[in-house]
Design a protein around this nucleic acid. Structure first.
Lengths: 212, 212
DNA sequence: CAATCAATTAAACGTTTGTTCAAAAATAAC
DNA sequence: GTTATTTTTGAACAAACGTTTAATTGATTG
């Protein structure tokens, strides 16, 4: 036993290619509309290799969700920590999360599209990640919550709204780029994160919009 | 020809039952994971009736999207019209749209879950509705856009963000009600609409949240 | 009553689905 | 070089898929 790289070296890419192709296909056609043969062909892999590495189609989906959520949670834990003001932390978090979404756009789309579905086996997974997310973000918010504020927002609502807001560009992109492609492409990811942060923290105010 | 009810009376419910069951099943299991036999059983209808009334499974999905979008567009046209200030119209729109989403939750979920998919035949449909939506909302916003405002928001981004924000509760509900069921159920739809409106117009400000 | 039309049925069509298995090829260990 | 172990293969499985057809029912109309 060389003790250094015991297993991973011998599996160079097949498993990874399956995962990559799966994310791409699930995001584009949907999980249910993607057949394992189509996936095997896209990954340039024998059909049986999918279940050899992942066990089942559903387990493959679970892994995709896990990869996305764990990365998202890492971002939250990193940016929401520390002793800065909540607004500062939220601004940091929004910028990091938007960049994370952009870098893992297809993972995000698979996750969002699967959010409403009620397969118990998968809902359990999603709920576990949601629990950690709400806890991580909620803890920081409660720390600064001076109970004088009249109407407070439940943290599950808070997390859902913020996540949806950050994801909106990617969720609507396939539609909106057919509506006004110029508007979407001329805006950088940094600008987009800035818009999300500003609206979420200060509201849409007087900025509104232009460029019909 | 009695000229009063020429056709609709003789078709009491079969078509409607299929549509209702389809929305429920598509929202819960996903479009791709729902078989037509399962749907026929849920609607208590013979399998062949589905294609008899709708032509194909895909056409059934298109009808669901059309029903949702046309209603959503009606809300936008109604509430964004008039000579009031944009902030007033937006507040009205948000309250009406949230209520519309709540009343047609499953339609909303089907639509959102299908948003990222790239079936050209369906994307075309979605884009046509998106075009009208962006036009309707964007026109009102440009009317009050005093170009002194430094950084303006593209209307496609604006629409996407607002829609995502309003939909967030329903999109995350299946997950979040397993995280903290109490928080979700104790908030009324009117309160939720108020939160969305306040955050979108004024930002999260000092309210933040409570209730771990 | 006969004719017309819409609604409904059961059965079958050919594909495609996810999954499994035993055998072969390739790689690692000794 | 010869075991072990892991990866890859092709073939097959039963089940489910979306769709179509021809025949039957029910009501409406002439």
């Amino acid at each position: 036993m060389a003790a250094n790289k015991k297993k991973k070296q011998t599996t160079p890419d097949s498993r990874e290619r399956i995962l990559q192709s799966a994310v791409r296909l699930f995001a584009g056609h949907g999980y249910g509309n993607t057949g394992l043969r189509e996936l095997a062909a896209a990954a340039d892999v024998n059909l049986a290799m999918i279940n050899y590495f992942f066990g089942s189609k559903k387990a493959l989906l679970k892994e995709i969700l896990d990869v996305f959520f764990s990365g998202y949670l890492d971002v939250a834990r990193k940016e929401m920590a520390g002793r800065d003001a909540v607004s500062v932390k939220l601004d940091r978090f929004i910028h990091s999360a938007v960049n994370y979404f952009a870098a893992n756009r297809e993972y995000l789309l698979v996750t969002i599209a699967e959010l409403p579905h009620d397969d118990p086996e998968i809902t359990e997974h999603k709920a576990e990640w949601g629990r950690q997310m709400v806890e991580t973000v909620g803890k920081q918010l409660r720390a600064e919550s001076n109970d004088t504020g009249s109407q407070n927002i439940p943290s599950v609502i808070f997390c859902s709204m913020l996540t949806s807001m950050m994801a909106s560009k990617f969720l609507f992109m396939p539609v909106m780029e057919q509506v006004q492609p110029e508007q979407l492409e001329e805006i950088s990811m940094e600008e987009y994160a800035g818009i999300v942060s500003r609206i979420f923290l200060q509201g849409v105010g007087d900025i509104i919009c232009d460029k019909g």
